[in-house]
Design a protein around this nucleic acid. Sequence first.
DNA 1: GCATTACCCTAGGAGCCCTAGGTAGAGGGA
DNA 2: TCCCTCTACCTAGGGCTCCTAGGGTAATGC
Lengths: 192, 192
Amino acid sequence: MPVARAGVTAERLTRAAAELADEVGFANLTVSALARRFGVKDASLYSHVRNLRELKERVAVLALAEVADRAASALAGRAGKDALVAFANAYRDYAREHPGRYAAMQFPLDPETAEASAARRHSELTRAILRGYQLPEPDQTDAVRLLHSAFYGYVSLEAMGGFGHHPRESDVSWSRSLDALDVVLRNWPGAG
Amino acid sequence: MPVARAGVTAERLTRAAAELADEVGFANLTVSALARRFGVKDASLYSHVRNLRELKERVAVLALAEVADRAASALAGRAGKDALVAFANAYRDYAREHPGRYAAMQFPLDPETAEASAARRHSELTRAILRGYQLPEPDQTDAVRLLHSAFYGYVSLEAMGGFGHHPRESDVSWSRSLDALDVVLRNWPGAG
DNA sequence: GCATTACCCTAGGAGCCCTAGGTAGAGGGA
DNA sequence: TCCCTCTACCTAGGGCTCCTAGGGTAATGC
């Protein structure tokens, strides 16, 4: 049972790293800055975390779990287009509230870590959306990928200012895009 | 007229940086590594490029121009779904051939540089795809954003291994997703 | 009360970005 | 031909980063 002397724990380190990433950007998340935030020398952190890579992995895993939680509760009790919209908004809202954590989700995890993380829950949740649309299995996988791509792409491009600086209009386009995705799920092109 | 003594020019520097980025990843593009590649000390590069940021911007601008060129020639003489598929494949193929340059396109450019770059051509080209689908103006903008998001998202997720490691299946899902996008463009949900 | 544990430290090496100031060779002008 | 200038490249060096090695000290467990 590890005892905290200046309050540094792998757990608290990860949470603080996530907050720091949200403030300065995931790419600027640094061991030195994190140590500074704890009033501690950077070398001291290496007792709790193997290296910067592991720290970033921890933030990524945290973010994946948080998003999965939000998505799950957004999906609860909804079906069809309702579920689609709720899921997509949960995803987008999280990215806007926690840009650093969102960026962390792109961080490449080694297969073991990914398996142990909530990455799997994500595909399952995305699949749950499709339950209301009655898609047969091979099409379901394709649809999951398209949805995931569209959500991820839209949120990323929006975050990096890819749509010009019209936040209001971007909201409208977002709704319209969700309408469009609903249409395509109801009229998924048959195999062949 | 600048004279080359060891062959270092802003031009050649940019091209070499793009190649280096493709090899080691855009995030690992470094002034030192680039200097090493030219058999020169890192400090020497600062006569040609202001700093690392400018170097990355140059690579981003180069990549945007190259992609726009490919997209333009893919679009030539095509319309409707043909155009959609050709454009999307040009985009995806470029990302696979030049992952570093592709990542560079995400690099945030300041507004002036973005304006001077090929970023504008990109929206115009994406809009050109829609010409065959006869969408009225407010919907057109939304559709451009959805298409861009889906292409960008799919290619990014694929590149970072987000779809598991089934390259063949990923090709199939890609075609299916393009089919689906074609469907949604032909049945775009009316305003309201 | 004492040994163990683990938390945090200092010291230091290596790599990176970038600035300041110096040297050598190519080009043009007298 | 000689010199002057311009510039491509250099060395020196400061600051920040990641990370390792090894030491001190306080709290825990007996």
